[in-house]
Design a protein around this nucleic acid. Structure first.
Length: 451
RNA sequence: GUGGCUGUAGCUCAGGUGGUUAGAGCGCCAGGUUGUGGUCCUGGAGGUCGCGGGUUCGAGUCCCGUCAGCCACCCCA
C-alpha cells in the first residue's frame, strides 16, 4: 500500500477546536445583528449551474469560478471539431455545466427570481455560507471562505442605502472592532455621470475606474502613469486627478448638474451624521471590481490590520433582470468572516477568550459507580449551562494531565474509595485544593465554586 | 494565471565553502511519586532532511522539475 501524505488542497483549511470556536462565535454575533434588524436567514447550494454563475461578475472575476467536471463520460458531449483543437475554453462548455458559487449575491438573485411569487417584498435576507474562488492564496486570502451577507431586495428606497451603513457599524461594534473600522463609500451613478463629462464612457469607464480604484495602494503618480498608458488624454487625466482630490461630493457640481447622480450620496452622508456614526469617508477613488453594482458602494477596512477589505457591498439594480425578472433592485453588504478573524488576531482583539473556562471534568477511576447517581450529578451541573466531561481513566496522573491540557476548571474524582464512602473528591484545578464532598452535595458545591 | 523567497522531529528552529552515527528547545512517553496535574529530576521514543530526478566516489548542503507555504502582481472578503 502506498503511503498517502495527509493534506488539504492549496488555499483550503482545517479548523482546530479553538479556531472553530472563534468562527462560530463570530457567526453568532453577526447573526444576532442581522436578526435584530429584521433579516431572515436562507441557505442555497454550494453548487450552481454555470449559466446562473457566469456573466455577472466581469470577465476577470469569472476566471476564478471553480468548475465541476460533469459526471460519467464527460467527453461524450464534446463535438468532434472541438476535440481537434487545443482551446480549453471551447472544451469547457461541453465538459462542465456546474460550478461552486463565487459569492452569495448571485445565488440570492437566482433565489429571488425563482421564488418571486412566494416572497414578500422588500425581502430582507441574511446568509452565512462559504464561497469559493480559484485564486492564488495569500495572507487573509483563501480559496474557500465564509461570507456573511445581508441584502434587501425589492426596494429603491434610499433608506436601505443608509441601513447598510447601520449594519456595518453595528456589526463591527458588536465584534469589538468599532474603533478600528473605517467605512468607505461612493456612488457609481456619480462616477458615471462625472466621467461622462470627461468624455469617458463604456469600456473606457471600466478601464479608468479600474485604475483609480488602486489609488490607495499605488499612489497618484502611478495612477496617472497607468491612465496615460491606457491612452487617456492629458485633459482627461487632469480632470481625473482633480476628481480624486475632492473631499466632498458637492464639488462634483463643478462638472454636472444632475441631481439624480449627486443627491443620493449627499443625502446618505447627511443621514450618517445624525446617529453619530463616525469614521465614514466619501472616497472618490472607490469603485469595486464587480460589474453588477449600479449605485452606492461600500467597503470597510480595519486600521492597523492590512488584510485588505473586510467587508464590501453596494446597490445593484438589475441583477434579477438576467433571470427574466425586471424592476427588482437590491442592495447588500458582506462581512468577510475569515479576513475579520485574521485581522482580529493581528490586532490581538480576542473577545471569545471567555469560552469554556468553566469546564468541569469527572475523572472516573472506577467501574463500580452507580450510573444513576453519576448521571444525576452531571445533569444537575449541565442544567446550569456548565459543560461537564466524563473521562474514564484509572491512572490519576494521566487523568489530571489531560484535565490540565483541556483547561478544566474543576475536577470531580470518583475512585473505589469514593464509591465506598459515598464522598467524591472535588478539586479546584487553579488552587489545587481538594475536598471530599457527600455525593448529594457535589453538584451544589461545584456550582458554588463557579459562581 | 505571472514573478520572488522559503520547505530539516508533532511545534519553533540550528546545521561556513558537499564528507561518513542530522542537532537543540518545547511537546510526547516512561520512571522518581502503585490514587493527583500545572514546578523539579532521570531516562526514552520520534527524521522518506516536502516529493521526483540529476551532478558527484559521496548531497540536508549544488542543479532541474514538481508540490506546498509566505510575499508581490492580477483580483477581491
Amino acid at each position: 500500500m502506498q503511503r498517502v501524505e495527509p493534506r488539504v488542497p492549496s488555499g483550503f483549511r482545517d479548523f482546530s477546536p479553538e479556531e472553530s470556536r472563534r468562527r462560530h462565535w463570530l457567526f453568532t454575533q453577526l447573526r444576532q445583528v442581522f436578526e435584530l434588524f429584521g433579516y431572515d436567514p436562507i441557505e442555497t447550494p454550494a453548487v450552481e449551474l454555470l449559466e446562473i454563475l457566469l456573466g455577472k461578475y466581469g470577465e476577470e472575476a469569472e476566471k476564478l469560478v471553480f468548475r465541476i467536471l460533469n459526471s460519467g463520460d464527460f467527453l461524450k458531449d464534446v463535438p468532434e471539431e472541438i476535440r481537434q483543437t487545443n482551446d480549453y475554453k471551447k472544451w469547457l462548455k461541453h465538459i462542465s455545466d456546474k460550478g461552486l458559487r463565487y459569492d452569495l449575491t448571485v445565488p440570492l438573485a437566482r433565489y429571488v427570481a425563482q421564488n418571486r411569487g412566494k416572497i414578500t417584498l422588500p425581502f430582507k435576507r441574511y446568509q452565512i455560507q462559504p464561497v469559493w474562488r480559484a485564486e492564488r492564496p495569500q495572507k487573509g486570502r483563501f480559496r474557500e471562505f465564509v461570507q456573511c451577507d445581508a441584502d434587501v431586495i425589492g426596494s429603491y428606497d434610499p433608506y436601505y442605502d443608509f441601513e447598510m451603513v447601520l449594519l456595518l457599524d453595528e456589526g463591527f461594534r458588536k465584534i469589538g472592532l468599532g474603533d478600528h473600522r473605517k467605512i468607505l463609500i461612493n456612488d457609481r451613478r456619480l462616477l458615471q455621470e462625472v466621467f461622462k463629462t470627461f468624455g469617458i464612457e463604456g469600456d473606457g469607464f471600466r478601464k479608468a475606474t479600474g485604475i483609480i480604484d488602486k489609488l490607495d495602494k499605488v499612489g497618484i503618480d502611478k495612477v496617472k502613469q497607468l491612465l496615460e498608458s491606457e491612452g487617456f488624454s492629458a485633459d482627461q487625466i487632469a480632470n481625473i486627478e482633480q476628481w480624486l482630490g475632492f473631499k466632498d461630493p458637492e464639488e462634483a457640481r463643478k462638472y454636472i448638474n444632475d441631481d439624480e447622480a449627486i443627491k443620493p450620496i449627499i443625502t446618505l452622508l447627511k443621514q450618517i451624521k445624525d446617529p453619530g456614526i463616525t469614521n465614514v469617508e466619501w472616497t472618490p477613488s472607490l469603485v469595486r471590481g464587480l460589474d453588477y453594482y449600479t449605485g452606492t458602494i461600500y467597503e470597510v477596512v480595519l486600521e492597523g490590520a492590512p488584510v485588505g477589505s473586510v467587508s464590501g457591498g453596494g446597490r445593484y439594480d438589475n441583477l434579477t433582470e438576467l433571470f427574466g425578472v425586471p424592476n427588482m433592485p437590491g442592495i447588500g453588504i458582506s462581512f468577510g468572516a475569515d479576513r475579520i478573524l485574521t485581522a482580529m488576531e493581528m490586532l490581538k482583539i480576542e473577545p471569545w477568550d471567555t469560552y469554556h473556562t468553566n469546564k468541569v471534568m469527572v475523572i472516573l477511576a472506577t467501574d463500580k459507580v452507580s450510573w444513576k447517581t453519576l448521571n444525576s450529578v452531571v445533569a444537575d451541573i449541565r442544567a446550569q449551562n456548565i459543560p461537564v466531561e466524563i473521562l474514564p481513566q484509572k491512572k490519576m496522573k494521566k487523568a489530571f494531565k489531560t484535565a490540565n491540557n483541556k483547561n478544566v476548571r474543576i475536577t470531580i474524582i470518583i475512585g473505589d474509595r469514593e464509591v465506598e464512602t459515598a464522598e467524591w473528591g472535588v478539586k479546584d484545578m487553579q488552587t489545587g485544593k481538594q475536598e471530599s464532598i457527600p455525593v448529594e452535595k457535589v453538584a451544589e458545591t461545584v456550582l458554588n465554586m463557579l459562581s
